[in-house]
């Protein structure tokens, strides 16, 4: 299980596109959360992936190419979800 946390513009098209990356690359999603980031116009999406570290890193690189994505973090291990929300 790996967690990828993405800071991105909060438009519907951007959120849709981000979820589409996972569907397009056929990566199983265990959990998905969307929060305001604290900065106006920017959301934080947190994906818990049923995937190994290599796959999570590959997904992160696909996110990084997306226009509207501000930053991407890959986190592993048990406390990753808490980590991502900090």
């Amino acid at each position: 299980m790996h967690t990828v946390a993405v800071l991105l513009d909060d438009g519907l098209a951007t959120l849709n596109r981000a979820v589409g990356v996972l569907r397009r690359r056929n990566v199983p999603v265990e959990g998905l959360a969307l929060h305001p980031s604290g900065t106006a116009g920017v959301s934080r999406m947190t994906f818990v992936l049923k995937a190994d570290a290599v796959t999570a890193e590959r997904v992160a690189q696909q996110f990084q190419k997306m226009i509207g994505v501000r930053s991407v973090m890959v986190l592993g291990g048990e406390d990753s979800t808490t980590e991502a929300r900090r």
Partner: peptide
């Protein structure tokens, strides 16, 4: 068309 072409475009604008 934005939704249809999302996976086959680099980016799109409405």
């Amino acid at each position: 068309i934005i939704g249809i072409t999302m996976p086959i475009t680099k980016h799109s604008y409405l």
